[in-house]
Simulated scan of single mutants.
Amino acid sequence: MGHGGDVIAELTTDHREVDELFEQYEQAAPGGAERKRLLEALTIELVRHSVAEEQHLYPAVREHLEGGGALADKEIADHGRVEQLLKDLEGRAADDLDFDRLVVKLKTEVTAHVKDEETNLFVRLREGCHPFVLESLGEKVRNAKKMAPTRPHPSSPSTPPINKLLAPGLGLVDRARDYVTGRGQ
C-alpha cells in the first residue's frame, strides 16, 4: 500500500498492512518457518508504528484534544502490552508450545487498539486539529518510522523527549542486527 497524506491516512495504511500480515500468518502452516518470518515482519511494522505514534501522535493528542492526556496514556499502555508480547515472542521458535497462543493474544491486543484508534482517537483528531497539523504530523510519523527500532524494547521510554533521543540509536542497532542476521529481508 502507498504511504502518504495526513497522519490519519498514514497510520490507517499501517493498520491495514498489519491486518494483512496477521491474515498471512493465519494461512501459514503451524510451527513453520513462514510463521516465524511473518511474526518478524509484524514485529518490525508494529514497533516502528508504535514508536512513531509515541514520538509524534500522542504528544499532539495531549496538546490538541480535551482530555488528551488520559487518552494518550491509555494508548501508550496499549503499546506497552503489545511490546511485551512481542518481546515474549522474540526468542521463541514457531514450533514452541506457546508461540501460537501468544500470537493470538497479540492479535487480540492489536485489533482492539486499532479499532479504538480508528473509531475514537482518529475521529476526535480529525475534528480537533487543523488539516495542516494533521499533514505535518503525517510527515513527522513517516520520518520517525525510518529511524525507529525494529525490535521490541519494552523498558525504553515511551514519551518525549527521552524517546526521541534514544529511538534513533536503538533503531540503528536493530537495523544493523537485522542486516547481519537477514531478519526482515
Rank of each mutant, 00 (worst) to 15 (best):
G2M: 15
G2H: 13
V7I: 07
R16F: 14
E20R: 14
L21A: 01
F22K: 10
Q24P: 06
E26S: 15
Q27Y: 09
A28R: 12
R37G: 02
T43H: 07
I44A: 02
E45A: 05
L46Y: 09
H49V: 02
L57M: 08
A60Y: 07
E63Q: 05
E63R: 10
E66T: 06
E66C: 09
A72C: 03
A72Y: 03
I76K: 08
I76H: 11
D78L: 00
H79Y: 12
R81F: 07
E83T: 02
Q84S: 07
K87N: 15
G91C: 08
A94Q: 09
D95L: 12
D95V: 00
D100R: 11
R101H: 00
L102C: 11
V103I: 01
T108P: 05
E109M: 12
V110T: 05
H113K: 13
V114E: 01
E118P: 04
N120C: 01
R124Q: 13
R124L: 00
R126C: 10
R126M: 11
R126I: 10
L134A: 00
E135Q: 14
E135H: 04
S136T: 14
S136L: 13
K146I: 11
P149F: 12
R151S: 05
P152R: 03
P152F: 02
P154W: 12
P157K: 00
T159A: 10
T159E: 09
P160W: 06
K164P: 09
K164V: 15
L165N: 10
L166W: 06
L170H: 02
G171S: 06
D174C: 14
R177P: 09
Y179E: 06
T181H: 14
R183V: 05
Q185A: 01
